[in-house]
Amino acid sequence: MKLKKGDIVARLSYECDLLFRVVSIRGDTVELAGEDMRLLADAPADDLVLISEEERTAYQKEAKALEENSYRLFRQDAKLMKQRSEYEVTSEYATSPNYFELRGRVLHIDGDSLYLRKCTDLYEKLGVPVYGVHLHEKEMPEQIESLLQMVQPDIVVITGHDAYLKTKGDERDLRAYRHTKYFAECVRVARKQTWHRDELIIFAGACQSHFETLIKAGANFASSPDRVNIHALDPVYIAARISLTSFMDSIRLTDVLRNTITGEKGLGGIETKGVMRRGMPLKIDH
């Protein structure tokens, strides 16, 4: 079997549990990136099987069902939040709401260009203002300060691919993680702009990232408490929830994690306030 960059494959030694995209080939070693999960992996070429279009379609159907369920739950919660906002802003009067919303702006830095496109599409679908940037994880710490100054976001998402490599050390050894150290350094640089965790909300991490390190560095939300894989779109649901929640309200951790695809094994965080602000009156341009 002749593999090439961009092929969709699965690992025989893992019973073909996940689909991967071929990133590069070095001799007999193939570097892989998860097709739906934010995981990087290396595998020998003879451990890989090429996935047919029919097999890929069947897998994507199952993955799509998970995504649609998370989207449905998120929209339900967003509708309830909006109804409560209308009730509060109109002082309980039965009048048409006459207010506007300034939703939190997201700076989303992603190590995977295809995932970035999927994420920005979902942000737009959810009505969340976003500025997306594709950077290799190693480049992120050098670029984040200038990006923060340019975009001036309320929320920053620092994600891409990661992996815990048992052969490099135990779970406490940061050297055993592919990219956690770069994500953590990004968080530290961002926190030099403001240490207050309600002035700049930070999500950091990808599949199997060292959760404790990212939280200690200053992230509000991070992956991955149980060192499991996280879905490509999980950071979007967390950032969007914060963007659409009033700064007068705190984020209920159970609610925000419930709407993700991976859940609390892959994602966690600390008590955090929303960033959306409401204003009156609503002026409509004619």
Rank of each mutant, 00 (worst) to 15 (best):
S52H: 01
T120I: 10
A63W: 15
G132F: 12
K125E: 12
E54Q: 12
Q149F: 05
L148F: 07
A65S: 15
V49E: 07
S85N: 06
G104Y: 11
T95A: 03
Q149G: 04
V49C: 00
V156C: 08
K138R: 12
L107Y: 07
T90R: 09
M140T: 08
L114G: 00
L116Y: 00
E92M: 03
E88N: 10
L102K: 15
R38Y: 03
T95H: 00
I155F: 02
L40N: 15
E92F: 06
E139I: 03
V89M: 14
Q143D: 09
D154S: 08
L107V: 11
A43D: 01
E53V: 08
Q60N: 15
K118D: 04
C119A: 12
N69I: 12
L73I: 10
R72L: 10
Y93R: 14
E92L: 11
T159H: 13
S70H: 06
Y123S: 09
A94K: 02
A58K: 10
G127N: 10
Y99L: 02
L147T: 11
V106Q: 13
V49R: 09
L50Q: 13
M81H: 04
S113P: 01
S70E: 15
A63L: 04
C119T: 11
S113W: 09
A58I: 04
D121I: 02
V49G: 02
S113H: 11
D110Q: 03
N69P: 01
V128N: 03
L135P: 03
R72M: 05
L135N: 03
A45W: 00
D110C: 06
R117G: 00
L116I: 00
P141W: 13
Y87V: 07
T95M: 09
